[in-house]
Design a protein around this nucleic acid. Structure first.
Lengths: 228, 228
DNA sequence: TTAAAAATATGATATTTATCAGCTTTTAAA
DNA sequence: TTTAAAAGCTGATAAATATCATATTTTTAA
């Protein structure tokens, strides 16, 4: 099993602030897992016994609304930590996480992380910073959901996906989301998402074949996102 | 000037985890302010030099959307801390805070709080917990905004306002929000909020005279919030 | 390989919500 | 106190979005 001290992934998240000593201890209690596409990392209401450090792959983090619709809150990917919140608040998870492709993750037991949080102020400050950042993003999402049209949100989502998962080759978005997933990100009916995607295609702003989407006209997409 | 060691307000937030010593130090550098109704505590883009501890009064925390509409993200009241996030992330505030009535607040300089955060793990853990809680609420708001109808959101908002600001007398909601404020909480046009409030009044589910709103039929309102 | 299931697509229609206009009531300022 | 401004209200209409129906394509599993 790989060792945390030697793992480069930790450079991308708060774990980079742990000492060599702390990392060695973590290595001894962590477990590595492969999670297949479509598998669930954890469900809503589940009590997590630790946190995940994502070494590879992408998962969608979502929540059911009272209306019985699924809302995707975020996409979590290589380098991210997942599950810190439930651990910190010591409550069952309010979210569900499902792999979008094959994932490599490490699972670090709760006690280990809590120990480090209380002993290492640099680490806890880093986690605080990450949470402050997430909270800021959440504010932005709330405003978008409340005030923007579905068309604006779709355009914005495509731009976001491109900046996170875009490849330089042909401006392709390197993540395979179903139309339903896209609809669940922007908060609309699947049919509406499909229709709007087709519109953008007709107007030569995007191009797609199945789940491979690429952006042809960034400028125009940006204008749409801003409401023009 | 009042002393933090003797202030009961701190029992309601993370400051309760500070030692007597830390509180005395805080007392010496904090300032107390009265903020009048309608005045701004801080604006979007402003760099905060500390955090606010709310002793009395209520303020609305909001954010402008790219569409030029204002979205109220939260209502902050007696006992709450305000501004920790900008302090932690060391960025300009992404939010604006405006007093809804006369407020009594203490302002604690940034350096003081940061010192306590790095020295007192119980305090920083408590701040972490609060942020995890806020993040969970943010998730709920996102799902509501994305998936619920305006009618549902209004019903839910009225129930929330009642549980936070409700009085036992006649089930009155003890906070004076303009129709525009209500619209900006639920994310809709002011006219739509007014229309839906009138509908609820006609159906004897709520009653109001100006800004004094009371709930006549909790059950029914709850059903509406859930989409029936 | 083929049949069934799931995902994608599109049209027709209903529902929700925003916008605009004009009116009345309330609030605040001279 | 008077009067201008702001807030609240309502109707008419337009625009956005959801829903339902159905067809086609793609994927999956036997």
């Amino acid at each position: 099993m790989s060792k945390c001290e030697q793992c480069i992934i930790r450079q991308f998240n708060s774990l980079k602030h742990l000492s060599r000593e702390e990392l060695v201890r973590m290595s001894n209690c962590k477990t590595s897992k492969t999670i297949k596409k479509g598998e669930t990392l954890f469900k809503e209401g589940e009590r997590l016994k630790g946190i995940f450090c994502i070494k590879d792959g992408i998962c969608k983090v979502s929540k059911m609304s009272e209306n019985g619709r699924n809302q995707i809150i975020s996409l979590v990917t290589k380098g991210d930590l997942l599950g810190e919140r439930s651990l910190i608040s010591d409550e069952a998870s309010n979210l569900k996480a499902v792999a979008l492709n094959e994932m490599q993750v490490c699972f670090i037991p709760k006690e280990e992380i809590l120990k480090d949080l209380s002993k290492n102020p640099t680490f806890s400050m880093s986690v605080l910073k990450e949470m402050a950042k997430t909270l800021k993003q959440a504010d932005n999402i709330i405003v978008d959901m409340a005030q923007k049209t579905v068309k604006q949100r779709l355009a914005e989502t495509l731009l976001n996906l491109h900046s996170r998962f875009g490849t330089s080759i042909e401006d392709t978005i390197n993540i395979h989301l179903s139309r339903e997933d896209i609809a669940n990100i922007i908060g609309t009916a699947t049919e509406s998402a499909i229709r709007l995607l087709s519109d953008l295609k007709k107007k030569k702003i995007i191009e797609f074949k199945g789940k491979d989407i690429s952006i042809l006209n960034h400028n125009e997409l940006d204008k749409i996102a801003q409401g023009f």
